[in-house]
């Protein structure tokens, strides 16, 4: 499948501070990609650059394999962004939805397009006559999404679409964006803190940390400082006095992360080069991007996400409240970019 959007050699700074450094990433046509990462990890900046609403300082964004930038050509008419706090023009809902259509020179069937867009986000077409100040927060968010869907975009980017809406609105937004992909082959890129929502909807999830793409998910972050035990062994002591062993940190307060697939709930004793932690199971869930179930395990003041085998014996051992052993290897703990 062809790439619809690509980023190459992007280095972006705000006031001299680096916020995004991406060598290469591409997004396939019709795919749904999630962007996950803590606050300040560069998700919103990445969306702004990809949606051609902001120009790259260094590097290039490609749309359908051709360099693209804000205001330069009509590519921006094929890509659209729903910001985290969408702004509604001080006009009626109808005028808000047709604004983008009028920019594209659309004059016919505006009423039908507005009704279709409102229907997609679960709002009745009578909403078209309402003024911007007559909407609740969730309705305003859905109207803003309807204004994007009316454009039938080739690529729709959503920044925290469910952050400030209720469950019903979140369900409607999910339904609407999936419909856009099904009906028009729209490529979706969604930044969200809502991991379960991302897991459920996305084909792939990109993890960002300090503006860079991580090779693994970032849930199991271990923050410094580290105590040196011998020449090559450093430890972090948890609240219950258990120790996590790591290799030499690149700098004293470095943060590290271990992918859940390398942190396993196991009944076996640790093998050579393996370390263990004892913890209590607090939850178990299915991750669409991983073949087996995932387990929440609390060790001292840390809550880890670990993996387990998908068999009855393992599942029985992972019932909430059970004490379990987590097995890991120090070399699987990777250091995060500064």
């Amino acid at each position: 499948m062809k790439s619809i959007l690509q980023m190459r050699g992007v280095q972006h700074r705000y006031n001299g501070r680096p916020v995004l450094e991406i060598d290469h990433v591409d997004f396939k046509t019709g795919s749904i990609t999630g962007l996950a990462g803590p606050n300040g990890s560069g998700k919103t900046t990445m969306l702004k650059l990809l949606s051609l609403t902001e120009a790259c300082r260094t590097g290039t964004v490609y749309f359908r394999e051709k360099p693209a930038a804000p205001f330069i050509n009509n590519n921006r008419h094929r890509v659209t962004l729903l910001p985290q706090e969408p702004y509604l023009l001080k006009r009626s809902v109808f005028e808000n939805i047709v604004y983008g259509l009028k920019i594209r020179g659309e004059k016919n069937n505006l009423n039908e397009l507005v009704a279709m867009a409102l229907d997609l986000v679960g709002l009745h077409e009578s909403f078209a006559g309402r003024q911007w100040h007559e909407l609740s927060g969730g309705e305003a968010h859905r109207v803003a999404l309807a204004a994007r869907l009316a454009l039938k975009p080739a690529c729709l980017l959503l920044d925290e679409p469910t952050a400030s809406v209720d469950m019903e609105s979140a369900r409607n937004i999910r339904k609407a964006v999936l419909m856009a992909r099904k009906e028009w082959g729209t490529t979706l890129i969604i930044a969200s803190h809502h991991r379960a929502w991302l897991n459920d909807i996305c084909d792939r999830i990109i993890y960002l940390y300090n503006g860079r793409i991580l090779d693994c998910s970032f849930e199991n972050i271990l923050l410094g400082p580290w105590e040196q035990r011998n020449n090559n062994q450093f430890v972090k002591t948890l609240a219950d006095d258990q120790e996590i062993f790591v290799s030499r940190p690149p700098y004293p307060d470095a943060s590290s992360v271990i992918d859940p697939k390398h942190l396993k709930v196991s009944a076996a004793t640790p093998g050579k080069n393996e370390k263990s932690l004892i913890g209590t199971v607090t939850g178990i869930f299915i991750d669409n991007h991983f073949s087996g179930p995932r387990v929440h395990v609390t060790c001292g003041d840390h809550r880890f996400i670990a993996s387990t085998e998908n068999d009855i014996f393992s599942m029985d051992n992972c019932r909430p409240g059970k004490k379990v052993t987590l097995i890991y290897r120090s070399e699987d703990i990777i250091w995060l970019p500064q």
Partner: peptide, 19 residues
């Protein structure tokens, strides 16, 4: 967020000014 919204909807510089 007005500017971001208008650009994301495809507005040109002139349309941003007028809107």
């Amino acid at each position: 967020s007005l500017r971001l919204t208008l650009i994301s909807l495809g507005a040109s510089q002139k349309q941003i000014f007028l809107t």
